[in-house]
């Protein structure tokens, strides 16, 4: 007998994968048989790789993260574009070691990856809780920005930090 957690996971993930197939085929109905097979395989793989109920995930947290991410992507892009236009004299690079409060590996990896797209930072090395960053301008308030991102990620994964 399947648990209700597994049933919910199958329904939600199945619906998302069907939506993805619909997008990939641009709404065409020609390959629906192939689509069923592909969605079935992807669903099976997703259930094997991520056991239902093993990851606690918040949808409102995801929405907040996406909003935060888009805003900061724009800021990061504009900032680095301005520095590039001014050339080398606008640079004041340095390195920074930060200790992450996130407790599981997946959110930490997401954090290291995301920081590469956020204003002023590139992740250089993630070693357990320690993350070494290269910062483009030491005068920026990098530590505060790192904490702001970390709290968004923690909320998305329902972690308490």
């Amino acid at each position: 007998m399947m648990s209700s957690v597994t049933m919910t996971a199958i329904l939600c993930r199945g619906a998302l994968l069907l939506l993805l197939w619909w997008i990939l085929t641009e709404g065409s109905r020609d390959g629906w048989l192939m689509g069923i097979v592909a969605v079935g395989c992807a669903l099976w793989l997703s259930l094997r790789l991520v056991t239902p109920g093993s990851v606690r995930f918040s949808l409102t947290g995801l929405a907040a993260f996406i909003g935060f991410f888009i805003g900061n992507s724009v800021r990061g892009g504009v900032q680095v574009a301005l520095i590039a236009l001014q050339g080398r004299r606008a640079l004041q690079p340095g390195t920074l070691e930060v200790q992450l409060h996130l407790s599981s590996p997946a959110p930490r990896i997401l954090m290291a990856g995301t920081l590469g797209l956020m204003p002023g930072t590139v992740s250089v090395r993630l070693d357990g809780r320690w993350l070494r960053l290269h910062v483009i301008d030491e005068r920026m308030p990098i530590a505060a920005e790192v904490r702001a991102l970390e709290s968004r990620i923690a909320r998305m994964f329902r972690e308490r930090i």
Binding site: S73, G76, G77, V78, V80, R88, H134, I136
Partner: peptide, 18 residues
């Protein structure tokens, strides 16, 4: 224009993604 591999990554990742 940027002087080393790390600063170049800043320019490429952020500006190109935007």
């Amino acid at each position: 224009r940027f002087p080393d591999v790390y600063s170049r990554l800043h320019a490429l990742a952020k500006a190109d993604n935007l």
